[in-house]
Amino acid sequence: MKQGSRFWAWLVFGVGTTYFILPLLATFEFSLRKRRGEYSFDAYRSVFEDPNFQTTFTYSVVVAIFTILLGVLLVVPTAYWIRLRLPNLRPVVEFITLLPLVIPAIVIVFGYIRMFGSNSTLPFLATARGTDVLLVIGYAVLALPYMYRAVDTGLRTIDVRTLTEAAQILGAGWTTIIARIILPNVLIAVLSGAFLSFAIVIGEFTMASLLNRPAFGPYLQNIGANSAYEPSALAIISFAITWGCMSLIQILSRFAPKSANRPN
């Protein structure tokens, strides 16, 4: 009986793993076939040597960093304040942060184009820099569900109210409390949200394309439309970047401040 259930468990595990791994292996295998008759990394070399790859990737990394900064500045104080003073508003805020999952990016970006065109009172789209700022804002909105949930989960693991009061009674103001007590204790959660934001920004296509910015997403699409092996190589590179982010979350979580209540 016990052996039978173990067999089925392994079978399900095997089927699941195959389902995820097989397409990836096939893509990887295909990406190595650029040279006729033998495996090579030519497709990867071609991708890395392409100046457009370097430009668009660098652009997206910079945009991702600004997106993360904006997200942290927006989400950490909000989630903290909701938990501390306005717990009744939590369902409302959770609903608002879920909206980007429900509203397609194309709707958001068309809204931006209409709202912030060159004739509007806030003409973000009148300059390239302004459009970059709008793209960062748009990405921060897209990453909001992940960032908010990550930070909120982090805040749930600490006694926000008592720690805040303990710091207040020792003379600390709000900036000190958030910077020295709250943020360090939810740092891993913030980093989780940050890496998820990074992964979203790196692969995003719709907003960057419609706002006509030289981002990595539109580059991926362009390569996919015009080459055979490079898109597979880029898919593997994108996976590697995402996995790298996830591994960093795992590694950094080891350095998280341990709670007195949950020492392990």
Partner: peptide
């Protein structure tokens, strides 16, 4: 006065030590 302006010390039931 706000708590941080009172020069009062307090010990909480839940210890409230800063874990970091």
């Amino acid at each position: 006065l706000k708590p941080n302006q009172r020069n009062v010390g307090m010990v909480f039931q839940a210890y409230a030590l800063f874990p970091n």
